[in-house]
Write a protein that binds this DNA or RNA. Structure first.
Lengths: 209, 209
DNA sequence: TAGAATCAAGAGCAGTGCTCGCATTTTTTG
DNA sequence: CAAAAAATGCGAGCACTGCTCTTGATTCTA
């Protein structure tokens, strides 16, 4: 398992070879099939691990910021996501890159997958609790499963639950563009650019400070 | 070439087999190597094609909206991007998904790659021209290559060149999350959600109407 | 028309995921 | 404690992949 992890970290998921992990383990390639029915099953396990690793890292960063203001916390958590991505590019690609072949997200992944978006959502929910909370409109309920979201984030007003999802996907977009090279030629300092984009989001959310 | 295109559209890029396109063409697999030195070279060609296909589609949509207001145009063009992605999911993944292996973007791709971001940038530039244009600050110039961006978009004020890049990556984030399944369980109506998120961006840019 | 450049074929190499039958260990059970 | 049962591993082998190399046609060109 950890052997496969290391190989992915070195060469990327697409290059992961069942026979190679077998070799590294001094096993026959066929022996691996006692533990993983198929190569995709191995990858799925790796995906869950990666989700949890990222989730743990982000939760830890959030815990350290528990006394900070909402803006600082929001930006700090997003930074933690980016930092994890830069440190584990292949795991990041494994999670957020092109899904393999047919791919339907196995049930086991979904709980691990929500860990980091939950942290971000909770911050926004708490920031909102300091002001007012208008309940979501019918139109908003039609396009988003408000209950499913607020079950993990805490209460969020209508526009904000939309913006929260939008912000999370935007953070993903920023990191992916950086990591996958789509900012080459336009963005020069990725750190400060990321921060600037995030503060713009914080402005949008009206986060103080 | 178009055979490979069709196979990618059917099975995705990772499953593209040189031997399969050879079979489809009633050729020996070795004959393909007269035209493409390696599988990656074939894929690179497909990437350029996909970029241009998407660029053409978006430019066409923009042309149809030439008489519309800036907000309508901005939203309309973004919708065109999404529509193209939904219609060509494998080509989209080929462009914006996990870059293959070592991957350094070949020189040929970059011009094709900027076509759609250029359209979006031009709209924002023109919208700004209707109001005022403050030139970018030193801090902004430090993190973004302003000249490279404005060379293709037209003049943009400092904060806006950052927000424009941020918006483009956010649009990518929205589409990718939808296409790669990360919105499953939270977003119910992808169309209206996408529109809502975009109008939120239009608000941020102060686009009238 | 002769020479040269191009195009295609086929055999073959090393690698892959995966299956199957057989042996060996380990664990459970009577 | 011994026997049955389950788990674990091995090696050969199949069909597939990207890619190389040599050989044979075809077509363009001087």
């Amino acid at each position: 398992m950890s052997t496969a992890q290391a190989l992915v970290a070195r060469n990327g998921a697409s290059a992961l070879s069942l026979r190679e992990v077998a070799r590294e383990l001094n096993m026959a390639s066929s022996a691996i099939y006692r533990y993983f029915a198929t190569r995709d099953e191995l990858l799925t396990t790796l995906i869950v691990n990666a989700y949890n690793d990222m989730g743990a890292a982000v939760e830890k960063a959030d815990a350290k910021l528990s006394t900070a203001g909402h803006r600082e916390r929001f930006v700090g958590v997003a930074r933690a996501v980016r930092r994890w991505a830069l440190r584990h590019p292949h795991d990041y690609a494994l999670i957020f890159g092109t899904p393999v072949s047919g791919y339907v997200a196995p049930a086991g992944t979904i709980v691990a997958a929500t860990r980091v978006s939950a942290v971000l959502g909770r911050i926004l929910s708490q920031a909102e609790a300091d002001t007012t909370t208008a309940s979501p409109s019918a139109a908003e309920r039609a396009m988003v499963d408000v209950d499913a979201v607020t079950a993990v984030t805490g209460p969020l007003s209508g526009p904000r639950v939309i913006d929260a999802l939008s912000a999370w996907s935007a953070i993903y977009g920023l990191i992916s563009f950086e990591l996958f090279g789509h900012f080459v030629g336009s963005v020069k300092k990725n750190d400060t650019f990321f921060d600037a984009a995030l503060h713009s989001w914080a402005d949008r959310f009206g986060l103080p400070n």
